[in-house]
Each structure stands twice: as C-alpha cells, then as structure tokens.
Design a protein around this nucleic acid. Structure first.
Length: 268
DNA sequence: ATGTCCCAGTCTCTGGGA
C-alpha cells in the first residue's frame, strides 16, 4: 500500500500539478492539506477520473484537508472531538472559538488514515502558538482513542513542527521562531508516545529529509528547507514499511507548492 | 531568508497568512 501526504497550497492553483502527480506516483491514498476551497469546491470529478474517491473538509479561503483514495474510504470523520478551535488574539478576539478545517480521517483498506494541518503558531509569543499547542494535545487524545479501537493508524500531514534540529537547514536561523521550540517538540513526542513511530523518508537528493522550502530567496535551490510534513504510523504499518521518500521533483518547475509530497510504501 | 505565492475584497492594487 502506498500512502502519501502533500500540502498543495491551494488545490485550485495546484490542480494540474496534482493530477500529473497522481498519475505518475499512483498512491493508493493521498492526504492533502491547505486545499483552500469551500467544502463543495474540491475538484472531486477531476481526481475521480483517475480512480480516486474524495473526502474533503473545507472552509474556503484558509486551511482545508482532504483524503483521496482508491483503496476504500469508509467511516469518514471531519474534525475530531476536543478540537479547541481558534479564538482570535487579544487585538481581535472572537465571540467564541471557531473550529477550523484542519483534520479529516477515514478507514482506507482497513487503516485509519488522518490528514492533518496543524496551526502555524506564527510567533512563540502569540495566541496562535497557544492554539497550536492545545490543538496538538487534543489531536493526541483523539488519536489515542483511535489506537484503542484497534485498527492500524497513520497520521499524515503538515505538522508545522520540525522534530529535531537535524530537520532544519540551520538551527541558528530559527532562534526565537516557531516550529522548533521545546513545547512544540514535546507535543510531537507526546503524540508519538500514544504508540506511533515517525516514518522518516529518504530525500531524493542530498542528505537532508526536507519537505518544505520557502518560496522566497531561492531557498529550494539552496536546499534550505525543513522537515515538517510527517507520517506517524502505528506498529502494524511502521513495522511493514518497504520504502519512504520525499518527491522533490514535485517541488520543481512551473507552479509548484512550497511543500513536496512524502510517500510511504508498506506491505499490509 | 523576509527576495514569493495564494486568496478575497477594497478588485489591475492591498492586506493577511504562510
């Protein structure tokens, strides 16, 4: 079974690249993040023509996650119990927290597969950073419940956290920034501690398993990236992995996302 | 690294987010 995760940074802008990539990589399941389209506006007919069923959780301009599967798509869950929602910041608080479209899961070929888009956090001093930590803690609880239910679990997505200093091009460049702080990394460790393993993919080129490179300043060309797109798998999957790679070709050329797909193959 | 890309609305520019 081949499962992949890809933050496409707008499915509307990326549709030609998405279709091209599906035809070439042929994943059984693709977890998509940042669709940036309303619930009913995912191009399900276009991916359907390639043999994929779609489950989308979208809200419009921001966020949005989807599962594309040709291995079945049952018991779809949009969002999860305990999601704290985003309540705005001190300057512009909301009346009540707004639940954002950041998680979807389903059973695909007997595996509970999640597509998640973790809040960015903006700065360590911001309310958005607290939201990020609370959101990750709630996700941990929801995933623990899935594991208790017994099916293999794979949590894929854009976690907006680099698990170690080796997962960023220069730790010094991230001093005072989100994505590398101890509380964020502790939140990932707590998620792993529910009974998952980090399936670290191999880069197609070079030593660094980066999955994201900023569009600005020639960062991709200089391989100044980060590994923030992760696959966390329970033992039935992580123990059966036959290959895992980062498709950096998808980051090249005309109109790429700023993220590359992460592809995992396992025998189950 | 703050050099780009994407979105919606104020709509051929601007501001927010990443």
């Amino acid at each position: 079974m081949r499962v992949a995760t890809w933050n496409v940074n707008s499915v509307k802008a990326r549709l030609p690249r998405l279709l091209e990539w599906l035809e070439q990589a042929k994943p059984d399941v693709l977890c998509v993040q940042e669709t940036k389209v309303a619930a009913d506006d995912f191009p399900a007919a276009e991916v359907g023509a390639l043999g994929y069923e779609t489950a989308h959780h979208g809200e419009g301009r921001w966020n949005g996650v989807a599962l594309l599967s040709r291995a079945g798509l049952q018991d779809v869950r949009r969002g999860f119990t305990g999601d704290p929602g985003w309540a705005g910041d001190a300057e512009a608080p909301f009346d009540q927290p707004r639940i954002e479209a950041r998680a979807i899961s389903a059973l695909c070929g007997g595996v509970r597969i999640w597509s998640v888009y973790v809040p960015n956090g903006r700065t360590p001093e911001s309310a958005h950073y607290q939201y990020k930590l609370h959101w990750l803690e709630a996700l941990r609880t929801a995933v623990a419940a899935d594991l208790a239910a017994g099916a293999p679990v794979v949590v894929c997505g854009d976690f907006n956290v680099a698990p170690t200093d080796a997962d960023v091009f220069d730790p010094a460049a991230f001093a005072g920034s989100t994505h590398v702080t101890a509380p964020e990394r502790a939140a990932l460790a707590a998620l792993l501690a529910t009974g998952l393993a980090d399936v670290v993919p191999t880069p197609m080129k070079g030593p660094h398993p980066f999955t994201y490179w900023d569009y600005r300043a020639g960062m991709f060309h200089q391989d100044k990236g980060m590994r923030i797109d992760l696959v966390y798998a329970s033992p039935a999957v992580s123990g059966a992995v036959s290959g895992a790679f980062i498709d950096r070709e998808a980051r090249k050329g005309k109109g790429p996302s700023d993220h590359a797909p992460v592809v995992i193959d396992f025998d189950i």
